[in-house]
Amino acid sequence: MKGSTMLLAGLLCLGAAAPALATSVVPKPLEVMVAEADQIVRARVVAVEMVDGKGRPLTDPRSRTGPGLDNQMRLVLQVQEVLRPRDGQVPATIRVPLWTMWHYTLGNIREATVGSESLFLLKGKDHAPVYPVDFQRPLDEWPRIQALMEAP
């Protein structure tokens, strides 16, 4: 499972190392992301969903996201523990929308994430990633994240 988490982390970071024509996002410091997060949860990815621009489910593992497409992929998380519930109670199951500009396929993200457990830094009522990259953190970062949450 740690390999799956690392694979997703690698996929999420691809934009930073890709050629100029690819979608990329400058990494944001963990300190800033923790400060901006409304919810920080430890959760297991139990499914990955995709819908088209009209909200219709897509099930073909070759379905894609990326520039010019209206498809939206979401990680379905089973929350194991709520570490920060800044905006009230966090449901037991949440759907985290991934940034639509990433060049992903449904099958690749399912393979990379389903069954993995991580810490997720989220914001808002729709539980969006606090930032398009690095919002999913390995479990061994919990002490560092906890220290950042307690820092003035």
Rank of each mutant, 00 (worst) to 15 (best):
R44I: 08
V82S: 14
L122G: 06
R144M: 01
E111M: 07
G88E: 12
L98K: 07
A92E: 15
A17M: 06
R144N: 05
G115L: 11
P132I: 09
G15A: 06
V130N: 04
G115N: 11
C13Y: 02
P67Y: 02
M149F: 04
V76T: 15
D126F: 10
E141R: 09
T23W: 00
Q146A: 14
P129K: 04
V79D: 08
D140I: 10
P19A: 05
E111A: 08
E81F: 05
V90N: 02
E117L: 08
W142T: 11
A9S: 15
K2Y: 06
M6S: 08
T105K: 01
G88I: 09
L148W: 02
I109W: 09
D52R: 04
V114N: 06
R42M: 14
T100V: 09
K123N: 13
Q136G: 07
L98H: 02
E117N: 08
N108G: 14
Q80K: 14
W99Q: 03
R56S: 14
R84V: 10
N108V: 12
F135W: 13
L14V: 04
A147S: 00
N71A: 07
P129N: 13
K28V: 14
N71H: 14
C13L: 13
V114P: 01
K54Y: 03
C13G: 11
S24T: 10
P132S: 06
L12Y: 03
P129W: 08
R44T: 15
S4G: 09
L106M: 09
D134M: 07
L139S: 02
A128R: 15
V26L: 07
K125D: 15
L8E: 07
P67A: 10
A18N: 01
D70T: 08
G15S: 11
W142C: 00
T93P: 00
P85A: 14
A17S: 11
R144W: 11
Q136L: 11
A128W: 07
D134Q: 12
K28A: 13
L58K: 05
F135P: 01
W102E: 07
A9D: 09
M73D: 02
T59G: 02
L139R: 06
Y131R: 05
P57I: 13
A47D: 15
K28P: 01
A35H: 09
G66S: 10
R56H: 14
L30W: 03
P97T: 11
A17W: 08
W142Y: 10
P132F: 03
P152G: 12
Y131T: 11
S4K: 10
W99Y: 06
W99S: 13
A92F: 07
P61E: 08
G15H: 04
G53H: 05
G55R: 05
T100G: 08
V90I: 08
R62G: 07
P91R: 13
D87C: 09
V25N: 01
I145P: 00
R64L: 09
R144H: 12
V46W: 03
N108K: 12
V76D: 10
T23Y: 13
V32E: 14
Q39P: 00
L98Y: 02
D52Y: 00
S63R: 09
S4C: 12
V45A: 09
T65K: 00
Q136T: 08
D140P: 00
Q89R: 15
I94L: 14
I145A: 03
Q146I: 04
P57H: 05
P91K: 04
P85F: 07
R84M: 05
